[in-house]
Design a protein around this nucleic acid. Sequence first.
DNA 1: ATGTTC
Length: 561
Amino acid sequence: MDLASAICPSISSLSAKMPTKRITVALNTNQSQRAPLLLPLTLSRNPADRESCRALVIKTAQTKLKFRKGSRIFVFRDGRELLQEQDWLDALRDDVILLVSAGEGYVGVRKEPTPEDGPVPSPDCSIHVLAKNALVDSQSIAQIENTVRTLPGLVHACGQPDLHPGSKYPIGAVFVSKRWIHPPLIGGDIGCGMSWYRTTLKRSQVDDDKGKKVGEKLHGLEGPWRSQTEREAWLTEGHESHSAGAEWDESLGTIGAGNHFAEIQVVEQGSSALLENEVILLVHSGSRGYGGDILKRYTSASQDSLHEDDEKAKAYMKEHDRACNWAKCNRDLIALRFLSCLEPGEDAWALGQNKCQVDSDMSIADVKKTLQQRKVVDIWHNNVERTRWPPRSPECIDIQQATSLALSSDAPTIVPGDDTNKPLNILPLPGSRGTPTLILRPRFTASTKFGLDNALSLAHGAGRSMSRANAYLAMTNRWGKAERLTVPTSVLFQRPHAKDGSDIRGGTWVICDEKQLVFEEAPEAYKDVYRVAEDLVRADVAEVLGWCRPRVSYKVRNEGR
DNA sequence: ATGTTC
């Protein structure tokens, strides 16, 4: 194409049409308030004239946006403030956005990011840190600030009192994100969470040194559970299969490493949901290798965030949901395997054993159903939850209404009225091993703007106070042999204690054949769970209903395969 | 956290 033909069409269209510009007038302080305006270029460019371009823009703000104080005009362009009166006139073109101000300076880009913009950071994101008592280091705060500075769509961030540094993004932080999903904020263990189950054991069977005997019953819990056909059946709920394929399903029913565990606890101080002296099982595990595989497939060095309109985001969410369901089935299967050791006479749990021939009057679905009757609570703390934002008072919650906000979480999210489990009125707040697990009840009151402050979430444990590397160093120095850390003599029950200050009922037997994990997960490598709870209570996001004493904490056993 | 990871 030669130069003349490229220029000619624009000249002819100019002369043929009425010379106007199709622009948008918006408020400088609230850009969601906007009105269209067809601005005739025949109007005077002199602001002193009564019928000038400027006068029409100001008048549009007055009549259409009910903004009477308009005295300055900015052009929404490159986030730059154009001070000279003529500047915005020179920048006029179709689709330009003019910002009307009452005299205040340019307040910056407030439009919602779109996929075309690519990821842009979230400068207007509020940050609320709940920790006052609990130790919080500057690195995790810096990680929250850095996350808000670099990821798009974030509108609110909450540092829970168990906050501590992760490799890049913090742990114990919750991010509320509009339109954007950030798989790395969830991390690899998608669907990780905790569940509590009742057992028929009496406290007399686990008190004092009998905890050791109960621990010795726990065998056959390592390695794959039964056949792939049976695993797939366990992963089937109604007509839906949560199978992740044979490779990943092989680890279904296994606890994993890190801070994952299954623990036999006694309720020392109960609530209506957990009665005093009950012996219960707490399972903390996730989606094992599967969630990490998902993270790997949906992120790259150049991409941490997916816009919700992107097909990739929809595909991620589908797999995310599958991993969450897989993880929940995993916790249930871990519980079944434990119950088969703890209650050997119970027919329903026979399926939990690998070796036993199951004289199956009971289908896998029936066994699962029986197990659900034992389940008190099951809560995810590594997931994306869609929720209305900002939260409404609980009386106004309409579960049926579609919501358009995503909540990326590193802590359990308790949406009021959520029906994923039983009525969600209690949650576990585990310390580490020898320290108590507190029973929490979430609160949603006007004082927290009905869960806005805490991003509808609660801390999911005591939170590390030492990195794994530091804990290993400090604990090997302090304890020497790992065995000294696996017996109840090292228990750390500072509070509450018996009237004479002693703790006659004893602490926790730890089954952990990985020496490094024994040291890394030592109670002293964690924050004080009571301080964490105090912060939640002070912030009015939870109350403490009671506490449980862990008696046997199962991590991993070398079954000598 | 993890069929890591060379």
